[in-house]
């Protein structure tokens, strides 16, 4: 179950490392901080597995089933998670880290920009809560405009305008014409062709 004896025949997958992009073993020069993040992820996998195993015991088994009940598969899945997590922890501690995904939009030399990650997540969460308060079109404008600005769109008002237009067009086509229940929001309450 080590990663090296399968590496030569297993293909490279999306989300998987791209071996040819980095022909030299870069693990050796990898700065140590990244190992911590990986270790945390592997430990989280193990912890989830333990949780699944414990929680599976509290699933109600109705009637008297003499065959496989609703708990059998959760036990199996919990076991798999724990096994995979433990193996990963051992691998990481022995110095075999995973490789992160490459991509042509990704600059491998840039350090992770955590601010962008946090801002994108915040915008998405605000979008979720905006849907029912200001209506879908404006929530959409917020999401599109906000995300574009965070990702580097300038000037900001052009992104906001594009988002608003996009949101309204989608609202008219999918809400008004196709009858999807997209809430138009209090501002556009009276406009009949926007209603789902």
């Amino acid at each position: 179950m080590t990663s090296d004896n399968t590496a030569h025949d297993a293909p490279v997958l999306p989300g998987g490392p791209t071996a040819e992009d980095a022909p030299l073993p870069s693990d050796a020069v990898e700065p140590p901080p990244r190992r911590w993040g990986e270790l945390v992820l592997a430990l989280a996998t193990t912890a989830l597995g333990v949780y699944v195993l414990v929680a599976a015991g509290s699933i109600t088994v109705p009637g008297s089933s003499n065959t496989l009940g609703p708990r059998a598969f959760p036990y199996l899945v919990g076991g798999m998670l724990v096994a995979a997590g433990v193996v990963l922890v051992v691998l990481i501690l022995s110095g075999r880290a995973g490789q992160e995904e490459g991509g042509e939009d990704v600059d491998p030399t840039v350090r992770t920009d955590w601010l962008t990650v946090v801002l994108l997540v915040v915008i998405l969460v605000v979008h979720v809560f905006a849907i029912n308060t200001v209506g879908w079109p404006f929530a959409a404008a917020l999401l599109f405009g906000g995300a574009a600005v965070v990702l580097g769109a300038r000037p900001w008002w052009r992104a906001a305008l594009a988002g608003l237009v996009l949101g309204l067009v989608i609202q008219v086509v999918f809400g008004g014409l196709l009858g999807l229940s997209l809430p138009a929001g209090p501002l556009l309450e009276g406009v009949p062709f926007l209603r789902g």
Partner: peptide, 16 residues
């Protein structure tokens, strides 16, 4: 298509 959707599909026109 747009006309057809508008004419038959939805609640928008049945306000009267």
């Amino acid at each position: 298509i747009v006309l057809a959707l508008a004419l038959t599909g939805c609640s928008m026109l049945e306000s009267s």
